[in-house]
Design a protein around this nucleic acid. Structure first.
Lengths: 204, 204
DNA sequence: AAAATGTTTGACCAAATGGTCAAGAGCAGG
DNA sequence: CCTGCTCTTGACCATTTGGTCAAACATTTT
């Protein structure tokens, strides 16, 4: 079960199928609320077959989460310290919002894990994530002190971006029910709203 | 099992104890991830004893949710259409933030339920919640059209308030880990940040 | 203090759960 | 075609799960 390079085509395909199914199930019910049978059924494989590719339920979950953490931080990582502050932040917001639209299950998987106390990714949060956030927060603080951004707490700014963008994925059902009969342009509306919000917040 | 008026003192006390324990457990693991044994143990009661007061696991969950929905919408409900727009909204934000700080389990219970597709509160959302939101959104839109607020989409404004305030409860672990060695004034910082954010967003 | 009512629980049940295993099916290289 | 390997699964297992029940224990009412 080399994570680096699954050997055969069958392995590659099945591991792919399993992770896809597991994402479906875990993102909806959380770790403890999900069952191997559910995942197996969703994947169209037998339960022992899952356990041929992964040693346990937890291993599947961990595989999903570690794959996710990397992608999830991509947009923040690519915020350029030498770029133009407001456009840099606005485009970070946009990229995060697009991820919420395009990968809502990933967002929910992450949300579930954090709500449950992050037992399986505490280390990643204290490590990679915190390092990255500290780094970017200091960039933002520098921008503020240079007068390129209105005065804001950099950490809470980052939290606000996560919160506002992920909300559209994590609370999708609620948003949809409340906006019910409204026109189906919700993503564009959200995009416009967030651009306005962060522009007004950050313009010196 | 009169929900209106539990008869004896013992009933009142035990129902209270059970709901308290259930809130602890459900808010952490979601409905499917929680077990009656866990709740019973947390409550210090035997499992059959729980089922003497509630007919099923689901009944406990529903009882919690319906109690919650009412309290949860209190702050929004008390936003005064005849008040001063910006202070009204800012104080709504503050009250919501305080609820996140003082009742994080309730916030997580709600978040879990929505993430999982809101199977047990879909009706409440389509009904009471939507009605209230429609009502308040129209108040906000009126304020905007009267020039008392900067131009914003009322619905997304409300979503943003929910999202930003609840984030501090739902993602508490993440926030705490990222802010680790920082001073322990996180609530005041958040409060100040949100006041700034909404003031800049809404001031015409 | 007896009768009636309310409360508690040990023992139990059927179904579901995470996981194992041995045996069979499929497939690649010689 | 045969050999050795990868892949698949039915049958199985111990534990946990939501839920039942009758019998014991408390409390209140008469």
């Amino acid at each position: 079960m080399n994570k680096a390079q699954p050997r055969t085509r069958i392995q590659r395909k099945n591991i792919e199928t399993i992770l896809e199914a597991a994402l479906d199930v875990f993102s909806q019910y959380g770790f403890r609320g999900s069952t191997l049978d559910q995942i197996a059924k969703t994947a169209g494989l037998s339960k022992p077959n899952l356990l041929y590719y992964f040693p346990s339920k937890e291993a599947i979950h961990v595989a999903l989460l570690s794959e996710l953490m990397d992608n999830w931080l991509g947009p923040l990582r690519s915020m350029n310290p030498d770029g133009d502050p407001i456009p840099e932040i606005l485009s970070y917001v946009q990229r995060k919002l697009e991820m919420s639209r395009d990968f809502p299950r990933e967002s929910r998987l992450f949300a579930n894990e954090i709500i449950q106390g992050a037992p399986r990714i505490e280390d990643a949060i204290k490590g990679d994530l915190k390092t990255l956030v500290d780094d970017k927060a200091s960039v933002i603080s520098k921008w503020v002190s240079e007068g390129k951004l209105a005065k804001v707490d950099a950490y809470h700014l980052i939290f606000s971006i996560w919160s506002l963008t992920q909300h559209y994925a994590d609370f999708e059902v609620q948003v949809a029910l409340v906006l019910a009969e409204k026109n189906e342009r919700s993503h564009e509306d959200a995009s416009l709203f967030l651009t306005t919000l962060f522009t007004r917040l950050l313009t010196p």
